[in-house]
Design a binder for these strands. Structure first.
Lengths: 214, 214
DNA sequence: ACCTGAACACCGTTCAAGT
DNA sequence: ACCTGAACACCGTTCAAGT
């Protein structure tokens, strides 16, 4: 996975294209047109290169997406959270992950569709496990809780970005189904369920997890 | 969205293809070959029909996927959970959602990529909100907690199915990064983080959420 | 060593024309 | 009313050949 071996001091033709530049350009294309519009051909055109050239740097499109996912987490782990309590530090780190995914269009979809295991991802997991172990939990408990926090954050952000971009009438579908007397609980909850106040939704879920840890 | 209007008592040619049958066949194809192998052309071939015919029943491939997502949740809401405590009922319902997504190959990816708002999805949300309201929570709190539970379940199951199918060396990547003295917390947590005991991971996250609600 | 050019085997979607 | 046949405008990936 990841990029191919770094070609330091090549003797032949000077490289026309560099992998980090390709990743940055790919992320820019996604920001502008969305993930579905990112194709190897369009990326090649944006880089002023032939399609086949991309395959010297990324064996597959999936590898390109993995490099993009890894890049999105740059700076997520440092500076280390310096809040007074471990609870606040967990909330800080989870918030950074959400922010990193939200920063780019379709960021959560990119991250969920890959298995980044580069230095940014590892440093982030290291920090989160570290905060929990520092709070006195066993390595096993810290590991499981890290997974729970990351999975909640990913699921939440996936939904947040999907609704934000598509506007495909999911809320409309909900309201449409509520005319009769069916779904009384959904009727009572509809205002909250369809509200766009994702920051509060996120804070609520995180609060549940952190209190559960308490 | 969803399927087109039901053609009851059509006067012209008898229909060669029915939407529910198409959804069932599409889910079977995904089970056999994976979501990436599901194309409109292959589905048409499996149904003994031309590609264009599919577009009388589903305006886009996305609509087909939405119908598949909705179908996957059939039976998820009933029978109503009958455990003694609301905590156990929440765990039961979350477990049913996970099981429904796991039942089909790439089920979580299908569900996460769509916005199903059909009767199965609505009945499931109705049940979960109902259990929380029955536990004495406000409609708003019940709504937010439902979102947290569903998003955690989706994020968890997405990861569970992705690792299960691809085996692309995410665990290998983790272990590979641990040789030096870097990532000491990951080194301590690695055995748990890379374990395939997803049922326990899921139970742990759910326990945090439920205790947070307590 | 690195890139070009061209091909292979596909896609989702549309639509005139048939029955 | 419903389906066929054929096309349009693309895809990801591979690989000989050029420089």
């Amino acid at each position: 996975m990841e990029t191919s071996s770094t070609p330091t001091r090549s003797r032949g033709r000077p490289a026309k294209m560099a992998a980090p530049e390709a990743v940055a350009t790919a992320l820019r294309l996604v920001d502008e047109e969305g993930l579905d519009a990112l194709t190897m051909r369009r990326l090649a055109t944006a880089l002023g290169v032939q399609v086949g050239t991309l395959y010297r740097h990324f064996a597959t499109k999936q590898d390109l997406l993995t490099a993009m996912a890894e890049e999105m987490l740059a700076g997520c782990a440092d500076p280390p959270p310096d809040q007074d309590t471990w609870q606040e530090q967990v909330i800080e780190l989870a918030g950074r992950l959400r922010a990193a995914l939200l920063r780019r269009r379709d960021g959560a979809r990119i991250y969920a569709g890959t298995h980044a295991a580069g230095p940014n991802t590892l440093a982030y997991a290291e920090a989160l496990v570290g905060v929990l172990r520092g709070a006195g939990r066993s390595a096993e408990s810290a590991a499981r809780s890290t997974l729970a926090i990351v999975h909640f954050t990913l699921g939440h952000t996936l939904e947040e970005q999907a609704v934000g971009s598509a506007a495909d009438g999911a809320a409309g579908g909900l309201y449409a189904a509520l005319e009769p007397g069916r779904y009384p609980n959904l009727a009572a909850a509809a205002a909250t369920l369809t509200s766009a106040d994702y920051a509060r939704h996120f804070a609520h879920g995180l609060d549940l997890l952190v209190r559960g840890l308490g």
